[in-house]
Computed example of a mutant assay.
Amino acid sequence: MKFGKLLAGAVLALGVGGAAFADGHEKTKVGFVYVGPVGDGGWTYEHDQGRLAVEAEFGDKVETVYVENVAEGPDSERVMTQMALDGADLIFTTSFGYMDPTNNVAAKFPDVKFEHATGYKRLHPNVSTYSARFYEGRAVQGHIAGNMTKSNIIGYIGSFPIPEVIRGINSAYIHAKKVNPDVEMKIVWVYTWFDPAKEADAAKVLIEQGADVVLQHTDSTAPQAAAQEAGNVVTFGQASDMGQYAPFPRVSSIIDDWAPYYIARTRAVMEGTWEQMDTWDGIGPGMVKIGEISDAVPAEVKAEAIALRDALADGSYHAFTGPLNKQDGTAWLADGETADDGTLAGMNFYVEGIEGEIPQ
C-alpha cells in the first residue's frame, strides 16, 4: 500500500531505551516508516500495533523506532537513510510508494535488512516484500453489501488506482453482484491514503449519489462519521476494526494483523536466519481478519458471510473464480477457473459491470 502525501509534523519516536546489554551484546534495533499518524485508526495504527507486539515479544532484546507522517518519495528516503545511519538492523517500510526509496537505501546499506509492505521490487538481497490478500476481505464485505443495500448503489472510496485497490474494488463488486444482480458501484478517487476531510467529502458525495453502503480503501474513520451523520448508510472498517462505529454504521471490518510477521522477521534477524522472501498471505494464515459482524446484519446474511470467510481461509473457494469477463466484455476466466497471482498482482482492469474508467 501507499503513495500518499506529507502530513505535517513527522515525529521520531523511540521504543525501549538503551543500546546494549550489560555484557556488551547489542540490542536488535528495528525501525518502522509510516505514511500516516499512528492514531489514524486504520492502516498505520495496525502497523504500530505490530511494532508494539515486537517489543512485547522480545523485551529488552530489541529497541524499536518509528517515524510517522512520512511522505512517499525523497522524504522517505531521507528517513530510511537516517534510521540506517542510527544503527537499525531491520527496517519495515509500510507504504506502497516507499518501494523505490527502500531499494535505493538498501543498496547503500547492505548489512541492514529491509522489508517493504505491498511492493514487488526486491532489487537487492537485503530487501524482502510482504503484503496481505485484502481482496479476500473485500469479498466478504461485498457479500454483505449486496444483501444490505436498498438503493442498489454501493459506493467505494478509492485511494490510488494501483493494483491493490483495483483488486479490492473488483472483489467487492463481484460478490455484491452475485447476491444482488441489480447492484451498481460508484467510485470516488481521493488520491490520498489519509486525509479525513477528503475522505469525509468523498463519502458525502457517494451518499448524495444514492449509495446506502460505502466501502473505503483509505485510512481514517472520517467516512464512518459521515455515514453515521447521514443515517441509514452501511460502512465497513478499513485496515483496523473501527469498532467505535459498531453496531452501525460499521457492520464489519477488514483487520490487518502484522504482528506475527513482524515478530517472525525480527526473530530471523536476531538469529541470523533472515533470508530474502516475498510474502502474500490472506485470511487463512491470519494476516487478514474479518472483524465482528454486527447484529445489524440479518442473521442469514451473517451466516453466509462467515461461511464465505471460512471457504476463503481453507482454500476451498477463491475470490476470483470464473466465469468472469473484463469490463470491455472480453473473456477473462472460464467457468470454475481461478485467477493466477501474477494477474492479480498487476491488475489494471475492472471486471464487467463496473462503470467508468480507471484513472491513469
Rank of each mutant, 00 (worst) to 15 (best):
K27M: 11
E271H: 12
I254G: 04
E72A: 15
H318T: 08
V288M: 14
T81S: 14
V38C: 06
K150P: 00
E26M: 15
E55I: 09
V140I: 13
F248I: 11
A319W: 03
V30I: 14
K2M: 09
Y66T: 03
V233F: 12
R167L: 08
M242P: 01
E72I: 02
T330L: 00
K113T: 11
F58S: 03
I255K: 03
D341E: 15
T44K: 00
A239E: 15
N103R: 05
D201M: 14
T102G: 01
G272P: 11
Y261C: 04
E337V: 06
F32A: 06
R78A: 12
F109T: 13
A305R: 06
W258T: 07
I358T: 07
G9H: 06
E68P: 08
I207C: 08
E26Q: 15
G329D: 07
L7K: 13
V54R: 02
E352S: 13
A299E: 15
S240C: 08
V233M: 11
Y350P: 11
A172M: 07
D281M: 06
I207S: 06
Y245D: 10
F114Q: 10
L52P: 04
A117W: 09
A259M: 02
F21G: 14
A227C: 15
N126L: 06
A334C: 09
T266D: 07
K177F: 07
F58E: 07
G137V: 00
F96C: 00
E355W: 01
V65D: 02
A225P: 09
R267V: 03
T93H: 01
A56E: 15
P196I: 13
N147C: 06
P223H: 05
D335Y: 06
G137E: 07
Q244Y: 01
V11H: 08
D281S: 12
E300P: 04
M80S: 08
T118F: 12
I91A: 04
I157N: 05
T235N: 14
G272S: 13
E55S: 04
F248Y: 15
K204Q: 15
I354N: 04
F248N: 12
T266I: 01
R265G: 05
F32W: 03
S252N: 07
I354P: 08
Q360T: 14
F134Y: 12
H318V: 00
S220T: 15
G142I: 02
A239F: 05
V179H: 02
L14N: 00
A88V: 10
A139W: 00
V127H: 12
I157W: 00
G24D: 06
R78S: 13
E352R: 13
P101H: 10
